[in-house]
């Protein structure tokens, strides 16, 4: 369960101070599928960074499963990201010149699994996204949809209970996008994973169980 209380975040751009979040309160329950929507400049990305433990808020409290993560050090946050959150980005963010199997094994390496366990779990994750026959392929040998599936497998590798996806279908054609959404929904329904999706796309918003609207740094 994710809980945010009065989260604020501002940063300096040149001489101007931008107040990206002005006191966000929200709660996302275990196993929910939530879409976070809002126009550009609304604070969506900042909110996502804080949910993903990629950044820390200026003030307020943020807990994941009752663990206060709002004042953690970089390395403590890294551990949380590794164990509890899987990321899927719009630009896939795969390592260049690296096979699909190694991409997926990467979080497992940082989690401290040995080579055999890593390979086994990475294979399992790749099979789960339908890429059992593409394990040795590098990103430049895969289509966009396949690359995004590798990214999903990577997000799943350490068995996190939250998947945070930032415009996951934004760089894909309609067909691939639909396939990716299908994978997400299956994961959500079968594994009970909490799915948080940041998006512009109202169609995706419709598929979510709940939409959180954000505007000018505040939840509507």
């Amino acid at each position: 369960m994710i809980t945010m209380q009065n989260i604020t975040k501002s940063y300096e751009m040149g001489t101007q101070v931008v107040h990206a979040l002005r006191g966000v309160d929200m709660q996302i329950n275990e196993g929910e599928f939530v879409a976070i929507m809002g126009p550009s400049g609304s604070g969506k990305s900042t909110l996502m960074n804080i949910i993903g433990c990629l950044d820390i808020p200026n003030s307020g409290t943020y807990t994941i499963d009752d663990i206060d993560v709002s004042h953690m050090s970089d390395d403590e946050q890294a551990k949380i990201r590794n164990q509890r959150i899987g990321f899927v980005f719009q630009q896939f963010n795969l390592l260049p010149r690296t096979s699909a199997l190694k991409q997926v094994a990467l979080p497992l390496m940082y989690a401290g699994y040995n080579r055999a366990e890593r390979t086994a779990r990475a294979q399992e994750a790749l099979q789960a996204v339908g890429l059992g026959d593409r394990m040795d392929h590098r990103p430049d040998e895969l289509s966009g949809g396949q690359q995004q599936r590798v990214a999903i497998a990577r997000a799943l590798a350490t068995d996190p209970n939250i998947i945070l996806a930032d415009e996951p279908t934004g760089n894909l054609d309609t067909q691939s996008g639909a396939e990716i959404m299908q994978i997400f929904k299956t994961l959500h329904e079968e594994k009970g994973i909490t799915l948080i999706m940041i998006t512009h796309d109202p169609e995706i918003g419709e598929q979510a169980e709940r939409v959180i609207w954000i505007r000018d740094g505040l939840i509507q």
Partner: peptide, 16 residues
């Protein structure tokens, strides 16, 4: 830089 960012996002610590 991007590679480093990806590694950190999936859980690499500073010392890694």
């Amino acid at each position: 830089t991007r590679e480093i960012g990806i590694r950190k996002a999936v859980g690499a610590m500073k010392r890694d």
